[in-house]
C-alpha cells in the first residue's frame, strides 16, 4: 500500500472496511489510499476482490462499514452532501451503461444537468456539445435500445461529463464491449482525461486497459496488494 502525497488529493480512503452479510463477507479490508488530482488510476483484480466496492464507496453510492472516505480532504457528512458532490465534482460510468431507457441519448445527458442548470435551452445546448464530443451527434435522438453497446457507453460518458467533474469514476467501462469498441471507448476516456485534466479512476480486470493508466492498484480479497506508478498515459495537465 502506498500513500501518495506529492499531488493534492481529490479522494482519500482512510482505513475503509466494507462488510456484507453481517460480517461474513469482507469486501474491503482496511483500505487506505490517496488519489491525486489529474491522475489516471486503474484498480485491477479478480472478480470479488473489492474493486467495485471501493469505487462505490468513493462515489458515496455505498456506505463503508468502518473508516472514512474524504473528498478534497473532507468527509461528506450526509447522503445529501454526497449527492451534491456527484452533481458537481464526480462523473460516473458503469459497466452496464445504466441509461434511462425512456429517454433519448441527448436527454440522458441532459437529465444529469437538472440539479445544476435551470435553463432548458442551456441544458440542451450543453447536452448537444457533449454528445458531439463523444461523436454521437447523428444518434442524439435515439433511445438506448436503438444504440449499440459502444454508443451507449459513449452516451454514459457524455452524461458523466455533464457537470464538468474533477474526477471520473468508471466501473469496468469496457466490460460489456467487444475488443474494437473497447479500444474506442478507452481512447475516448483517456482523451477526456488528458484534455479536461480530470482524475480518471477506473476499475478493470483487463490488463491492457490498466496498462494505459499512469498508476495501477491491484486488489486481492479486499486488500490492496500492489500500488505502483508506471509510464501509462501520465498525469493530465
Amino acid at each position: 500500500m502506498t500513500a501518495r502525497a506529492e499531488v493534492p488529493a481529490v479522494v482519500d480512503l482512510d482505513r475503509v472496511r466494507k462488510e456484507y452479510d453481517g460480517g461474513r463477507i469482507v469486501a474491503l479490508d482496511d483500505v487506505t489510499l490517496r488519489f491525486g488530482q489529474g491522475e489516471s488510476v486503474a484498480i485491477i483484480g479478480r472478480s470479488g476482490s473489492g474493486k467495485s466496492s471501493m469505487l462505490n464507496a468513493m462515489a458515496g453510492l455505498d456506505r463503508p462499514t468502518r473508516g472514512r472516505v474524504l473528498i478534497d480532504g473532507r468527509e461528506p457528512p450526509s447522503a445529501a452532501h454526497w449527492t451534491r458532490l456527484r452533481q458537481s465534482s464526480m462523473g460516473l460510468v458503469f459497466q452496464s451503461f445504466l441509461l434511462l431507457p425512456t429517454l433519448t441519448a441527448r436527454e440522458n445527458v441532459e437529465v444529469a444537468m437538472f440539479p445544476r442548470i435551470r435553463s432548458v435551452a442551456a441544458r440542451r445546448a450543453r447536452a448537444d456539445e457533449l454528445i458531439a464530443e463523444v461523436g454521437l451527434t447523428d444518434r442524439a435522438h435515439h433511445r438506448p435500445g436503438e444504440l449499440s453497446g459502444g454508443e451507449r457507453q459513449r452516451v454514459a460518458i457524455a452524461r458523466s461529463l455533464a457537470n464538468d467533474p474533477r474526477v471520473l469514476l468508471a466501473d469496468e467501462p469496457t466490460g460489456n464491449l467487444d475488443s474494437r469498441t473497447s479500444a474506442h471507448v478507452l481512447e475516448l476516456l483517456m482523451d477526456l482525461h488528458k484534455t479536461r485534466g480530470m482524475a480518471l479512476i477506473l476499475v478493470t480486470h483487463d490488463p491492457a486497459v490498466a496498462e494505459r493508466c499512469h498508476r495501477q492498484i491491484r486488489m486481492v480479497d479486499g486488500r490492496v496488494v500492489e500500488d505502483r506508478v508506471h509510464g501509462g498515459e501520465g498525469r493530465a495537465a
Binding site: 434511462l100 437538472f114 445544476r116 458523466s160
Partner: peptide, 13 residues
C-alpha cells in the same frame, strides 16, 4: 434502478 441512476448522477432525494 432508474431512480438509483438519477441519484448516482446527482439528483437529490
Amino acid at each position: 434502478q432508474e431512480l438509483a441512476i438519477l441519484s448516482a448522477i446527482g439528483w437529490g432525494r
